[in-house]
Design a binder for these strands. Structure first.
Lengths: 194, 194
DNA sequence: TCTGTACTTGAACGATTGTTCAAGTTAAAA
DNA sequence: TTTTAACTTGAACAATCGTTCAAGTACAGA
């Protein structure tokens, strides 16, 4: 009975994520989405329910990509602290110009949406917490390896990483000076809270 | 010849600023604006030119309010460094619930807009730089008073204040825990870069 | 080959968007 | 009081918005 139509579902979400990330929820129209994911309105609504439903999937895809990137950084270097630094650099400096926006999609969403889209806001908060939990895991590992003082509060440090990343990525959109930005990332890890 | 109609211009911009700040540029419709500033479309367009023109005025009003607040903080305490801390607390913690959004309107604008509104983006960047320059002035004063090491780069410190403020205000929208937020602000000034 | 159904299509819907402008109102100058 | 120009009004515009659904297509099972 089943007809397989959804081979391109992941790709559709990928493309939708890129567009939403670039233009935001309100800035993206269903017709923009139809173009980039190459689906007609009927199919989109049958698959994702609504513009909000698709955005929610995009948010999740974005967060998963971030966590994958964090794991990749962990594999690329021998220290969890260096991994965090590498992750922050790739997020803030965006070596490859592949990202649709310098800013964090979750931060953009927190800024754009109001209580009119309470469930989407809630989802963005949840995903930010999910990412912060990954920071905690990495910081605990760093603690076990002696890279971080054992009397430090890893949750506090994770919040710090989160604030620095969001702040620097926002600043990056206004600044554009690669050298300044790189120095600022390095300074986060140089002396301060670790 | 002149007929004075614009006694309420400042008030109109004030109300428009509140609405834009809360809902963003794309999230605010001209009809929303008509309601809160109590003007008909013809008058709005005669006075401000376009939705973008009014938004540009709102951005400037917002930045001016911020700088006024910074000056007020400077007058309220005896130290420029304490003034910066007080300013950051009022921005992040929002004692009075008067602010339409916890987040910085300029940061929100940086996040929301793309090159489709290049001039508005440019204006937001310009105003962020203007505020950063005020931070520099305050930090220089702190240096003269010996509160900040004379070998520190005040521009670098001002960037740091900017990043912390934007990052914390974004985090504040997702966090909501007053105690955690206050601790984070205090930590910025406790040991780290000064 | 025929049937039944999972899936796609795109014209069309009413609502809302940013903006315009002819008509109306107001008040200072004559 | 009349004239004149500054200013306000709100109906109306074309364009676009998110969404729906009857009709069409494509394929698995009989």
């Amino acid at each position: 009975m089943r007809k397989n139509a959804k081979f391109d579902r992941a790709e559709a979400v990928d493309n939708a994520t890129k567009l939403y990330w670039e233009k935001g929820f309100n800035g993206t129209s269903m017709r923009n989405l139809q173009d980039v994911i190459d689906m007609r309105p009927g199919s989109i609504y049958a698959t994702f329910g609504s513009k909000e439903g698709l955005f929610k999937e995009a948010l999740n895809r974005y967060a998963d990509m971030g966590i994958e990137e964090l794991f990749a950084c962990r594999k690329a270097v021998d220290s969890p602290l260096k991994a965090l630094q590498l992750f922050m650099k790739s997020a803030v400096l965006d070596y490859t110009n592949s990202a649709p926006s310098r800013m964090c999609m979750l931060a953009k969403t927190m800024g754009e949406l109001t209580e009119d889209n309470a469930d989407l806001l809630q989802e963005a908060k949840r995903l930010l917490a999910k990412i912060e939990a990954e920071f905690v895991t990495l910081l605990q590992e760093a603690q076990e390896l002696g890279e971080v003082d054992s009397n430090k509060d890893v949750h506090k440090l994770a919040r710090h990483i989160q604030v620095q990343t969001m702040g620097l990525r926002t600043y990056a959109k206004a600044c554009d000076d690669h050298t300044i930005l790189e120095t600022m990332v390095d300074d986060v890890f140089k002396h301060h809270p670790f």
